[in-house]
Design a protein around this nucleic acid. Sequence first.
RNA 1: GCCCAGGUGGUGGAAUUGGUAUACACGCCAGUCUUAGGAACUGGUAGAGCAAUCUGUGGAGGUUCGAGUCCUCUCCUGGGCACCA
Length: 811
Amino acid sequence: MEKYEPKEIEKKWQKYWEDNGTYKNYSREKKFYALDMFPYPSGVGLHVGHPKGYIATDVVSRFKMLNGYSVLHPMGWDAFGLPAENYAIKNKTNPNIFTAKSVANYKKQLEMFGFTYDWDREINTTDPQYYKWTQWIFLKLFEKGLAYESNAPINWCPSCKTGLSNEDLEDGKCERCGSEVEQKPMRQWVLKMTEYADRLLYDLDSPELDWEDMIVEQQKNWIGRSEGVQFEMKIKDSEEKIEVYTTRIDTAFGITYAVVAPEHPIIEKLKDKISNYAEIVQYVEDANRKTNLERTELQKEKTGKRLAEIEVINPFTGEAIPLFVADYVLGGYGTGAVMAVPAHDERDFEFAKKYDLSIVEVISGGLITENAFVEDGILINSEDYSSLSSQEAREKMADWLEKEKIGKRKVNYKMRDWVYSRQRYWGEPIPIIHCEKCGAVAVPEEQLPVMLPDVENYEPTGTGESPLAAITDWVNTTCPKCGGPGKRETNTMPQWGGSSWYYLRFIDPKNDKELVNKELEKEWMPVDLYVGGAEHATRHLLYARFWHKFLFDIGVVSTIEPFKKLLHVGLIMAEDGRKMSKRWNNVVNPDEIIAEFGADAMRLYEMFMGPFTQSIAWSTSGVSGTKRFLDKVWNVGSELAINKHINFESSADDSGKHDIKVLLNKTIEKVSKDIEAFKFNTAISQMMTFMNKFPGLEISINDFEKFLIVLAPFAPHIAEELWETIGHKESIFLQAWPEVDEKYLQDEEVEMVVQVNGKVRERLMVAYDVTEDEIKETALENAKVKVFTNGKEIKKIIFVPGKLINIVVVD
RNA sequence: GCCCAGGUGGUGGAAUUGGUAUACACGCCAGUCUUAGGAACUGGUAGAGCAAUCUGUGGAGGUUCGAGUCCUCUCCUGGGCACCA
């Protein structure tokens, strides 16, 4: 018997599958689209954490193939990004060179795992034939008014020298480099994601989407819908007014002042009336200089300035109250102005304490001399509304505002429109031409793609233009509308552009007439299983859903959601429990693991480590466990191939035959269920339990073949090799998944627990279908049981068939 | 502060409607084999006790014949959001 040499058989079968197109069986009746979040091919290559999600989709893909599905399981490259660009800046070479090298390296590493990828469908976001369609989508958004230019202040990373979207921030810092971002007004392209806010929110609960709670909740929080009212407060002795937004209109009789954000236009409008205007201007300038971080994290000390002499009117009481400017009010949310109720809002309470403003209690239940009482309650001091509940009052007061035409019900979102331009080189050019006469004009569709030209210097300029601005040949063009002189847009798209629709391109990767063929799209969409990192919950997954809904609206796609089932991969930490990082010198390279244990053992180990979505520390000695398991499979399989029948201990009798059939059928059942439920760890432990019966039990070759098919999704190479050794000519992956034989799901004998008052006192081997009457006598007469029942009155007996009998006695 | 997910042996973890707590694996211990080390294989492995037995799923209560699982309170860990009015 030959020894199990993974290295040889793995190469052999990887070549065989590729040469024979074993996976490309696309004409079956049922379809399954399994997708991984495609990687950014970095220069350093994979560590053992990266492939975990790919292994899971591969297991599911192979399982589905064996169950008669056409399976689409593609891979590609999200290749626009900073590392390649930084390499280009340093070496003054086109980032394409770096990208191509990294892609080749990644592909080589991925191929060692024996994944079922159809490499004919490989895509790369930096390929002009690909980004042509990314640009096309932008043009459609522009055409529908969903892409617009804005000059509002946005997040600016001084180190990356580019504007960023809210989704690109982490704790108010640049997600890529960790620098604190500034607020900087600049011309930029913005996508109207807020127009889709409601659908993005509500469709999270639609039956077309079946995601983990964690991700759903994160998106809901991010979208941040709140229902309230917006109403106007008149400025006393003036025609001007401010609009404020609140979710707590029930507290309106407790308003003692109002606040506007530093960027609020009313300040400028009232400058003749504000007696301390110079001071106010100074405050606004100071506030603008603060970074996001200073403005939000240093919240312990609130600051503000009263707009001297200015007073606003509370429409409910007619009372005139002071108006402040303070940076605890955000300019970008709601109206940028709020009513302040110190008795029932913590921030207002703190501010009122500091500036000695009055605090009026209007909801009973708290102790407002100590703290703001922020919960709902019963209204007091609120004229006609007194003694209503907060909930009732909110309805009645909103009704009144609407009737008087002072205000209206209003929904607000935390989510902002998507800041879509970057002042960097390595991204898709935005297909727009600026014309002095016509304004921003779309590049005609037939001129796509707008190619990203080579430049001499890839360094970001910091001026609000990308390095493309330096190529005057490219920038200067003619306006497609009037034929006059025009200038090309020099900003590029963010990293998230290409990845917001790539799942559609895999379906029809070479189509140069349309983004995706409609028939094929209907055939394959939605993605049935999507696996990737949880860090994309509020970035990629939000953007992709937004674009998908837009593509649905313009008739490109037929489903309202792109990804049916979403699963996040739990991180693999280093053995020391920290994140794997060059910095800590704790990175484990998959090439070395595969060289030592084989790809199959590595695949098994990563699926066996623990629950798939949980983050767990790597253990190289753990891989030796799954390797030992495969050794055993190899030995039993090889023995069988020679003898066609196995009986390690010659005395195995007929009952052994029944036992192994039961174990086999239980294994088939459990593995099938567990793969569907993504409980790969318990599926593998069941297969281990099965193999642990050898030597000892007798098994026929037919039964062992069934086991091999069940093992095949996890350890495809060894399964295929043994399948061949046994004498089969056709790939194991063209076989049918074994059916569970119901008559072999029940053990003949089971262990029955005998309890007294719920405590285990004895275990008896009994026929599985023993009845209460049959077992009662035996149990009561049992010596160990008697010790605890002697001389006591038996109150009742509880019997659970096949499991236990519990004798309840009076103590 | 708010939202989500979790707390089970030395370690990763397992446990249908409440029904044998610790499956499977790592590690460790002992044995076999080996010139030796390693590998491989076999057996053992929650804690206390000579034993019968007792105690054990973060903690405190509760419901129940019976609770890792259900209820109330509480502590801790990881993740997300966060001056969003």
